[in-house]
Design a protein around this nucleic acid. Structure first.
Lengths: 199, 199
DNA sequence: TAGTATGGACTTGTATGGTAGATCAAGAGG
DNA sequence: CCTCTTGATCTACCATACAAGTCCATACTA
């Protein structure tokens, strides 16, 4: 969101800005365009993709599908060491939620979901989730500001871990789907407040 | 599979081979490395990724999760025009199966799955599926040779469409999962026959 | 003989000049 | 007043040249 949706980018501009040549910038933009965060218009320019509700719906469904599969697998087998590290992550996140520390809470969020995937031996799937997560993070960046939202987040994480500890796949899947459903609450609000970010 | 797993690639070689400069080749390889089909070793070289059973397992799970979500959504709403085109695709595929026409059958397979996604308004999800499908297609390329396998494929496609026509999400999901499970039968055989393609 | 430099032949990574295509504004012609 | 043309000025795209790291065969040394 440092470059808001709709921003026109130029390989040359970014190159001079970061004091590198155009080529590595171009390669980075190609990677970003594969994810869908930017849109390269041949011979015309590059723009930061605007948020589309239709796109967000599909992105959410995809993430829900993938992360549901992850927690289901987590109920079958889960690495003990990683299970231990999750408690620390949640504690950090809970503390950050009390203090309203946005940076820490989002970093811990990534760590949490990544730990779930790694513990369930689903690192490749996590790589896919990362791509769709990038889109959802843009919306969340605009919403996750009040401490109530943060507290809810931590509670939902706890519910997911509890279900995995109980080796209850259905409960875990439900908790995960519920967790990822959260964005649906915020989306209309963001659309109303920042219509210029949407297409 | 024109460049078998394990093949050492060189930006320069490919560039002269296709009579372009190194830069577009390099950008293509970067895209392929994002999908995981090639592995770029900085300052050392680029190799076509070997097939890993662990990776294939996760890839299969991911695709199953995504395409299950697609057919479930397809049971809720499905575009009528696209529904019509599917019959033609399946007919083409059935004919190709009788003749043992590998090229046509795989092309129709892609069209079928893509049509499902498009009809269910899940084109973004289909883009994700394409990436994982590339990995599975490498294995299938080694297995889908006998006509029995081809006939099974078409029947499974029909079962999926039938379930969607009946608006039965559970049946559709089951049919899709069963269909994507097929690769598990072939994987051990391929591993035994072409161990050099695996890591 | 074993171990260690060393130079050359690779590799990917980066920088830069030039090209083709797209856009837009100003001006000519109807 | 509208339509079309033209040219300047953007852009991404491509080709080329250079830099830096890796590997390996060879030669040299203890």
């Amino acid at each position: 969101m440092e470059f808001p949706p709709g921003t026109r980018l130029s390989e040359g501009e970014i190159a001079t800005r970061y004091d590198v040549s155009r080529q590595p910038v171009r390669e980075a933009l190609i990677s970003l365009s594969r994810i869908g965060l930017v849109q390269v218009l041949p011979q015309r320019g590059t723009i930061v993709t605007r948020i589309s509700t239709r796109h967000m719906m599909q992105v959410r469904i995809a993430r829900e599908a993938l992360e549901s599969a992850i927690v289901q697998r987590a109920c079958e087998r889960f690495d003990g060491v990683i299970r231990g590290s999750i408690d620390a992550i949640l504690e950090t996140q809970a503390r950050a939620a009390c203090e309203g520390d946005y940076m820490t809470i989002t970093a811990a969020d990534s760590q949490f979901h990544a730990a779930l995937a790694t513990g369930a031996d689903c690192e490749m799937i996590w790589q896919m989730v990362l791509d769709v997560k990038a889109h959802m993070d843009r919306v969340r960046h605009l919403t996750l500001q009040d401490r109530d939202s943060m507290r809810i987040l931590v509670e939902q994480h706890r519910a997911i871990v509890d279900a995995i500890d109980q080796r209850d796949p259905e409960k875990a899947e439900h908790a995960m789907r519920h967790h990822l459903m959260e964005i649906l609450r915020d989306l209309p609000r963001v659309l109303a407040e920042r219509a210029d970010y949407f297409e």
